[in-house]
Simulated assay, not measured.
Amino acid sequence: MNFATFDLNLLKVLDALFREGSTTRAGERLGLSQSAVSSSLTRLRHALNDPLFVRHGNRLVATDFAEGLRHTLPEELERLRSLLSPPAAFDPASAEGTFKIAASDFMAEMLMPRLGDLLDKKAPRLRAQLVDLVPYDYIESLERYDADLALIPDTELPGWISRQPLFWSPFVVVARDGNPGISGLAPGEVMPIDTFCELRHVLFSPEGNLSAMGDAALARVGRTRQVAMTVPVFSGVCRAVGGSDLIALLPVQLARKVEADYGLKVFQPPMRIDPALIIGIWHKRMDQAPMASWMRARIFELLKPLDGVA
């Protein structure tokens, strides 16, 4: 490729093709006609000496060479935009925009009310959206611009992801006040392991898995529990426990916040369960983006007090 004569505007077309998967939709994204996008794609193919995309039905499928550009191209374009744009001070009071947070409904309870109050007072034109944290897809959602930030338990991450540790979340056992299975137990006590294993459980699992961290912890002491149902949202777990003789493991911060609302009693688990480290993750291309940086900082400040809740 002759870089001296290469038209950098073609990279914007390539990025749009990656995002949209068709020349028509890429043109709509860029404000160009379909024929103009096709012409640019032809020029790209000649310049890069690769077909870049092959047609598969109504979709364009990237070649191996093009696939290698998919993850780095948006970041490089963002760097070019930052390089060529004059720095501007971010004013939250006048800024407009939308910030998407991928998280479980744990954050609907623990974050969104306080974030809503903060935005109302300091950034009334900014909009926050809590979107579903889809298992196995939240990292890709950052790449696709479907989310600006994901709040997740700590895990291995690709190199193009930035991360910030936020708080440790231990687990506790919850049961409804009046559940005959907890007769004689005082809130805050360690639930006997026989009681824990004999009572039936509600399990939080967006995927519908029948085992989780609690089962791994029980297995280490040679015991098992009875999972009666799985629920994809924490609010559903709380409602199920509050309306039945089922019990559940919940993050302690959530249990303390909702115990009065659902008529729950909170106990310590009978076996050691390692607490989950909750982290915030985002695409490195957004490291220096003014609005995203401001929103992340505010969200992290709001979540910091959750560390140490027991």
Rank of each mutant, 00 (worst) to 15 (best):
L52P: 03
M110Y: 06
F167Y: 09
M110I: 07
R79S: 08
F106T: 08
F90C: 09
P113I: 10
G116T: 13
M107E: 05
E67F: 12
T42N: 14
H71L: 14
S85N: 08
L166Y: 02
S85E: 12
D137F: 09
L126F: 00
L60K: 08
E78T: 12
Y138F: 15
Q129S: 01
P113W: 00
R59Y: 11
Y136T: 04
P92Q: 09
R70N: 03
L157A: 06
P170K: 04
D132T: 12
A123N: 05
D120C: 11
M112C: 03
I152M: 10
L77R: 04
R176S: 05
T72K: 14
R70S: 08
R81Q: 12
A103M: 14
P74T: 02
M112E: 06
P92T: 00
A89I: 13
V173L: 10
S141I: 00
T98H: 03
L69Q: 06
F167P: 00
L69G: 02
P87R: 13
A89R: 15
G159Y: 09
S94I: 09
R55A: 08
V54K: 15
D120F: 13
Y145F: 15
D120H: 12
I139V: 14
P51H: 05
A150Y: 05
L118I: 01
L142D: 02
T63I: 07
A95N: 02
P124I: 04
R59I: 09
D117K: 13
R127V: 07
V174A: 06
Y136V: 00
R59L: 11
I152H: 00
S85P: 11
D105S: 10
L48C: 13
A108Q: 09
L41W: 00
D148R: 06
T63N: 11
R45Q: 11
P86N: 09
K100Y: 07
A147C: 08
A95P: 03
D120W: 10
A175K: 01
D120Q: 13
L83E: 11
R114W: 13
L44M: 03
Y136N: 11
L133V: 02
L149G: 02
A102P: 08
I139G: 07
H56A: 09
S104G: 15
